[in-house]
């Protein structure tokens, strides 16, 4: 079934990816967070902040997210999802 990509199909793939990128939202499960704050370290737009008292991360500004995926990849607990 896998056809080799043509010029037009790869263009269409770009559109699909772009659409997905735009619709992606961050989902965060604070229960799974162990507070290493790697998400806060890598987020280039400041979505995350640190709750020093409870020792967990806080998704403070989800609207700033650019769906780069850095926090999702770096979180060792897989507490963050983009979908």
């Amino acid at each position: 079934m896998n056809k080799p990509p043509t010029f037009w199909s790869s263009l269409w793939e770009h559109v699909e990816i772009a659409r997905t990128l735009r619709s992606l939202r961050l989902y965060f499960d604070p229960q799974m967070c162990t507070g290493i704050w790697e998400c806060y370290e890598v987020c280039p737009v400041g979505c995350w902040s640190r709750d020093l008292e409870r020792g967990i991360a806080v998704l403070e500004k989800p609207e700033a997210c650019i769906a780069c995926g850095a926090c999702v990849l770096q979180c060792p607990e897989e507490a963050i999802e983009l979908r």
């Binding site: 770009h14 559109v15 990816i17 772009a18 659409r19 280039p44 737009v45 650019i66």
Partner: peptide
């Protein structure tokens, strides 16, 4: 812009 994503979705 690093703050905006997916310009290809504008093509349509």
């Amino acid at each position: 812009s690093p703050f905006m994503r997916g310009e290809q979705a504008n093509w349509g």
